[in-house]
Design a binder for these strands. Structure first.
Length: 104
DNA sequence: CCATTGACGAAGA
DNA sequence: TTCTTCGCCAATG
């Protein structure tokens, strides 16, 4: 299994309404990638991966910088599954961070 | 092989 | 709290 496949396997396990960060995924791996490595993998993930549930360590939406992706899409998708944002436009990590131990 | 560019993140000012 | 700087690592030309 390649490192990228492991990134996708972990991302697919994130439940609806929960989020995690690039760096956390990096550390969950058997052979850790750098956070940027995970970001690169996510930039070309398969369609069945819930990419919107992966945000920056402080809850930042990072996909708005991409020209091929309309701004606001990630936030809209997350809000549609119940994720709340703070006044600065960041995900309320305290409330939505995914804890694999609970897995729900 | 070298330089540059990311869907990053921690540390310091 | 916001802004810079720097390390990280895979991909691309």
């Amino acid at each position: 299994m390649s490192s990228f496949d492991e990134v996708y396997r972990i991302a697919r396990a994130i439940p609806r309404g929960r989020v995690t960060s690039y760096g956390r995924i990096a550390r969950m791996m058997e052979r850790p990638l750098s956070p940027k490595g995970v970001g690169w993998a996510m930039s070309q993930c398969p369609d069945d991966v819930p990419w919107q549930r992966v945000v920056g360590a402080q809850g930042d939406v990072r996909t708005d910088s991409r020209a091929d992706m309309p701004e606001g899409v990630q936030r809209a998708m997350l809000e549609a599954e119940g994720v709340r944002f703070d006044t600065k436009g960041r995900v309320q990590m305290q409330a939505h961070l995914w804890d694999p131990a609970q897995s729900d």
